[in-house]
Design a protein around this nucleic acid. Structure first.
Lengths: 138, 138
DNA sequence: CTAAGCCTTACAGTTAACTCTAAGTCAAGC
DNA sequence: GCTTGACTTAGAGTTAACTGTAAGGCTTAG
């Protein structure tokens, strides 16, 4: 089975070797094998685990909490309930982020229209008296 | 018209006075008025501007870039084109974030199902031989 | 056989965005 | 009149997540 050096793994995951060593130091790669010379050897399963780690990071989960999850994984079936609950919680977090992002998008789109109109008119003054709410200086 | 102390403004915006002073120091509140005693006095329009600032922050825009935008606002109609383009770019950024978040959600939901099944079976081993891809140790 | 370009370790430095401290001012309540 | 508490300033400290440096060891192309 193909294995990867830290540089190759970094390339595949779009990270740097620095970052992967940092993750290792923080305990996010507990089962990573080494060659006789002590060089890290990444298996496909390690890359899959790292993809999950990146996914959790995307949700805003801090490294320390991700480590807790990794420790649970090493702990086997004892921790199934915790791991299930963690993913349920992540799901709620991501759903909330989605809501927030939709609101943000709505504001941004209004601003796009606002500036489109102002550009057409050649001046922001077009908004000054028609719509009190749109007359903010920003 | 009602004005707000820094503490009141902080409460309304769900920020801290520290943060608002920091924004001021970084030039994000260029037109903020002061009382005769030198105390900041926030108007409704300042709060509106801060809501836009929070919105831009949500999109991952760094403080320095937000300051550039605030400077453009002070510069009047000269900068309408730049401001329009900035919001168009933000729109694209948010759209990309939304895509990424949807992908993340999909992975998380798969993991929820994975752990639901494992919990029902009482063991993660249920996934071990049926689906090679689901057999990752994480 | 040796130099290039990986890799290793331990540890220091960087960055953004706060967050707080110290020293001092000011307005309001008792 | 004096204490309380919110405000001011300049500037130092914190935090997370990297990011880089220094000193040195393997591996392979020429």
């Amino acid at each position: 089975m193909k294995t990867y050096s830290i540089g190759e793994a970094a390339k595949v995951l779009n990270l740097t070797p620095y970052t992967l060593r940092y993750y290792d130091k923080e305990g996010l790669l507990p089962h990573i094998e080494r060659t006789s010379g002590g060089i890290r050897s990444f298996k496909e399963s390690d890359l899959e685990a790292l993809k999950i780690i990146e996914c959790l990071k995307m949700t805003g989960m801090p490294i320390k909490e991700i480590k807790t999850f990794i420790d649970w994984c090493s702990d086997g079936d004892n921790s199934l309930q915790q791991r299930y609950e963690m993913f349920q919680e992540r799901k709620a977090v991501v759903a909330a982020q989605m809501q927030e992002l939709l609101q943000t998008m709505s504001v941004i789109e209004h601003k796009c229209e606002y500036y489109q109109t102002a550009l057409d008119a050649g001046t922001e003054a077009i908004h000054k008296h028609n719509h009190a709410k749109a007359a903010s200086p920003v």
